[in-house]
């Protein structure tokens, strides 16, 4: 087949089937992404204590959880404590990381100082170092310093990698920021602080919010680092891990589904806040 014939054949194929092929491919990608989650949600309504086989619809696991009964070895009180720990760690981590991460991003963007390139490179390290290395090194550090492991050390550990995520995202936003706007504000009589408040911050706000959301997810999600440094406390991922080791129970599915719903609500709220000027 000559090249020109091949081209004709290809363009005809594209014209006749291109759209369908693209739609099918897109469909597969989404199936790949969402089928496992759908299965988990479905099984949280499955009327079976152990099997991963569909046995009929029930809401009994949800009712049991909300009334505080243990379902298939999952103790709701322990799950609740684990969730509380996860939330406390994530919230404190995000607040501290956003504050210091934004400040670090501003410093790296604005100032030329000795060691800036080194510092900028080092910021990315926690994103690259394997979590397991991070976990071990933090464990060593806390042991040497003599800090008792628990929620506090977990927070410190999470901040150590969360600052990087916030910094990287805010820095990206700052690099597309037009500095002339700040000059204009100061020219009009705004002090440095007023300029930051009314011009810089509103314009880098999407970066800060994105950094906070990612930082929250990273902290809330983290298993490996937390596992090394939290001592005998539980976070939700560690609690789940303990449960799943003894087989998947409907209780795990229920809690995971509820977390998913909670996450969606948080994201919806965050998007609503994005539109409002601080």
């Amino acid at each position: 087949m000559s090249v020109s014939k091949l081209k004709v054949w290809r363009s005809r194929l594209m014209a006749n089937h291109g759209k369908k092929a693209l739609a099918a491919q897109t469909g597969f990608v989404y199936l790949f992404l969402y089928v496992p989650i759908a299965v988990m949600i479905a099984l949280s309504f499955n009327d079976s204590r152990t099997a991963i086989v569909w046995n009929g619809f029930t809401t009994q696991w949800y009712e049991a959880l909300f009334s505080g009964e243990a379902i298939a070895r999952v103790d709701p009180n322990q799950a609740w404590i684990a969730l509380q720990n996860s939330l406390i760690i994530a919230v404190v981590t995000v607040v501290v990381s956003v504050l210091f991460g934004t400040m670090l991003a501003l410093a790296l963007d604005r100032y030329v100082f000795t060691g800036r390139n080194l510092l900028q490179g080092v910021v990315y390290m926690p994103l690259i170092i394997p979590s397991i290395v991070m976990g071990i090194s933090l464990l060593l550090f806390f042991n040497i310093v003599g800090l008792e492991q628990g929620i506090g050390t977990a927070i410190i550990g999470h901040i150590a990698f969360d600052i990087s995520y916030v910094t990287v995202i805010v820095l990206a936003r700052l690099q597309s920021f037009n500095r002339t706007l700040e000059e204009a504000a100061m020219d009009l009589g705004a002090s440095e602080l007023e300029t930051f408040r009314w011009v810089t911050m509103p314009l880098i706000k999407p970066g800060i919010i994105a950094g906070a959301l990612l930082g929250f997810a990273m902290s809330f999600d983290d298993f490996v680092v937390t596992f090394f440094i939290i001592g005998n406390q539980n976070t939700l991922p560690i609690f789940f891990f303990g449960m799943v080791r003894q087989g998947i129970s409907p209780g795990v599915n229920v809690i995971a589904t509820l977390i998913l719903v909670g996450t969606l609500i948080i994201i919806a709220l965050a998007q609503k806040i994005q539109g409002i000027t601080w």
Binding site: E183, A184, S191
Partner: peptide
């Protein structure tokens, strides 16, 4: 004196209007 302490106003080449 800082720019905000001076009684001058500037019209910038890029206008520098606040987009928000």
């Amino acid at each position: 004196l800082q720019p905000f302490e001076r009684d001058t106003s500037m019209v910038f080449q890029s206008y520098a209007l606040f987009p928000h």
